[in-house]
Computed example of a mutant assay.
Amino acid sequence: MKRLGVSIYPEHSTPDRDQAYLKLAHEYGFSRVFSCLLSVQGNREKILADFKETVAYANRLGMQVVVDIAPRVFQALKISYEDLSFFNELGASGIRLDLGFTGREEAAMTYNPYGLKIELNMSNGTRYLEQILSYQPKRENLLGCHNFYPHRYTGLAYDHFLHCSWQFKEKGIRTAAFVSSQAASFGPWPVTEGLCTLEMHRTLPVDVQAKHLFATGVIDDVIVGNAYASEEELRALSQIDPDRLTFTVQLNEGITELERKIVLEEPHFYRGDVSDYLIRSTQSRVKYKDVPIPPHLTVEIKRGDVLIDNDLYGQYKGELQIALKPMKNEGKTNVVGRIAEEELILLDMLKPWSPFRFEHKK
Rank of each mutant, 00 (worst) to 15 (best):
M1H: 10
K2H: 13
G5W: 03
S7D: 06
Y9Q: 04
P10T: 03
H12Y: 12
S13M: 07
Y28E: 11
R32L: 12
R32H: 09
R32F: 09
S35W: 00
V40L: 00
G42Q: 08
D50E: 14
K52D: 06
Y57V: 02
Y57L: 01
N59V: 02
R60N: 15
L61F: 08
R72E: 11
R72T: 14
F74A: 05
Q75H: 06
A76S: 12
L77N: 04
K78M: 06
S80W: 00
E82H: 05
D83K: 00
F86K: 01
N88H: 13
E89G: 00
G91L: 05
S93C: 09
R96N: 00
L97V: 03
D98L: 05
G103V: 02
R104N: 13
E106F: 08
N112I: 04
N112M: 04
E119H: 03
N121V: 11
G125K: 01
L129S: 02
I132V: 15
L133A: 08
P137D: 07
K138C: 14
E140R: 09
L143T: 12
G144R: 03
C145S: 15
H146D: 09
H146Y: 07
N147A: 11
Y149V: 12
R152L: 15
R152M: 13
T154K: 14
A157Q: 15
F161K: 06
L162P: 13
L162F: 14
H163A: 14
S165A: 15
Q167G: 14
K169T: 14
K169D: 12
T175K: 03
S180K: 03
S180T: 15
A183N: 12
S185C: 11
G187Y: 08
P190Q: 09
G194L: 06
T197N: 09
E199N: 11
E199H: 11
H201W: 09
H201I: 11
R202T: 10
D207W: 02
Q209W: 07
Q209M: 10
F214Q: 06
A215P: 04
T216F: 08
T216Q: 07
G217R: 01
V218C: 13
D221W: 08
V222A: 08
I223T: 08
G225D: 09
N226V: 03
A229N: 07
E231N: 05
E232Y: 03
L234N: 13
L234K: 05
L234H: 08
L237H: 10
S238C: 06
Q239K: 15
D241S: 15
P242T: 10
L245A: 12
T246F: 06
F247Y: 15
T256I: 06
E257N: 13
L258F: 02
E259H: 07
R260T: 10
R260V: 04
I262E: 03
F269G: 04
D273W: 03
L278K: 01
R280E: 13
T282S: 12
R285Q: 14
Y288Q: 06
K289M: 14
V291G: 02
I293P: 00
P295S: 15
L297Y: 02
L297I: 05
G304D: 01
L307S: 10
D309S: 10
N310L: 03
G314I: 04
Q321R: 11
M327W: 09
G331T: 07
V336M: 02
R338I: 00
R338F: 00
I339R: 04
D348E: 13
L350Y: 02
K351P: 05
P355Q: 01
E359C: 00
H360V: 00
